[in-house]
């Protein structure tokens, strides 16, 4: 089975279970969670099912295409189901069969691994899933996103597709992975890895990036004030990626780090609150009408009680 076959198998599997098949977001992100189809849709009472493959950039993990496992950019196959159904673990185990892993002939273990993203003000409880000792998936019940505690709980399933594909293909170097029957992962991506690593570690202009961080932050706030949540969030994403580049460039001191992460988190939290308010104004269109009215009444009661914006604030 090739890398491409794996992506197709997962896509088909989750499409058959009612997921919206989305395309990757067209901006740099560090993880599939940052895609608005996860970050925002995890919030609020509306149901949601989505699956997509997200190219995820981690500049500090860049190794110039020399390391057999580590990449500047890897792919995540991401599923978000809200609320997670009672048999979500069984569905997940079925998904392994879609690419030829029969749980009865292997050892599948769910080992505690709680997830936290300080830049997104998000946290969840869950496991890393191990297949015969190898980590293949992060399985997380979100508890909080954008500083907002969640009431209807989404399940996020993130497959590490390179790793699974390497296992299936029996190769030990990611660049040897067959992308399809005619071309390898290395042939498609290696030069890209080299250039991105070089840029992140050596070439990137620190002053330019620092200025971009400040300007994207300001633009995000300005745009949010105009109630344009998605464009505002995109500037927050650019802040996040700019931060990651600065970090790889060695331009973030240990003390500055929490301050910069805090600035991105405050943006993300403001966006989350604004998005939820917007959905309430739209009367939660994905809910049946009676449930929508209930949800709006509940939100109103909570915002009165909290005295703040809808959805409350991150407890700190």
């Amino acid at each position: 089975m090739t890398f491409q076959d794996l992506l197709l198998a997962l896509t088909r599997f989750w499409a058959e279970r009612g997921c919206v098949i989305q395309m990757p977001y067209d901006l740099e992100v560090g993880a599939g969670t940052m895609n608005p189809d996860t970050f925002f849709r995890a919030l609020g009472p509306e149901p949601w099912k989505v699956a997509y493959c997200e190219p995820s950039r981690r500049p500090v993990d860049g190794r110039y295409g020399d390391n057999p496992y580590r990449l500047y950019k890897h792919y995540q196959f991401q599923v978000l189901v809200k609320p997670g159904p009672d048999d979500i673990q069984d569905i997940y185990l079925d998904s392994l069969k879609s690419f030829g892993i029969d749980p009865a002939r292997h050892e599948i273990r769910f080992e505690e691994d709680n997830w936290e993203s300080p830049t997104l003000g998000a946290a969840g409880v869950g496991w890393q899933v191990l297949l015969d000792g190898m980590e293949i998936t992060q399985f997380t019940y979100f508890q909080q996103v954008g500083g907002i505690p969640l009431t209807r709980i989404p399940v996020e399933i993130t497959y590490g597709v390179e790793r699974i594909a390497m296992y299936l293909a029996g190769v030990e170097n990611v660049f040897d992975l067959p992308w399809n029957d005619t071309i390898t992962y290395g042939e498609v991506r290696r030069r890209d890895e080299f250039e991105q690593s070089s840029y992140a570690f050596k070439t990137a202009d620190v002053e330019f990036l620092q200025e971009m961080f400040d300007r994207h932050e300001a633009e995000a706030r300005r745009t949010l004030a105009a109630d344009l949540v998605i464009p505002a969030y995109e500037h927050a994403l650019r802040c996040s990626h700019t931060f990651n580049l600065l970090d790889a460039r060695g331009a973030v001191s240990v003390t500055e780090r929490p301050a910069l992460i805090g600035r991105v988190r405050r943006l993300a939290c403001a966006m989350a609150a604004a998005w939820l308010e917007q959905r309430a104004r739209l009367e939660f269109p994905l809910l049946p009408r009676d449930k929508a009215r209930e949800a709006m009444a509940e939100m109103e009661a909570r915002s009165k009680k909290g005295g703040g914006k809808a959805g409350g604030r991150k407890p700190s």
């Binding site: 609320p83 997670g84 009672d86 709680n114 409880v125 019940y141 508890q143 969640l150 009431t151 209807r152 709980i153």
Partner: peptide, 15 residues
């Protein structure tokens, strides 16, 4: 550490 799941409202170690 406890968690919520599904429709929320209840906390336990795992669902």
């Amino acid at each position: 550490k406890s968690m919520s799941w599904g429709e929320g409202g209840i906390q336990f170690v795992r669902p």
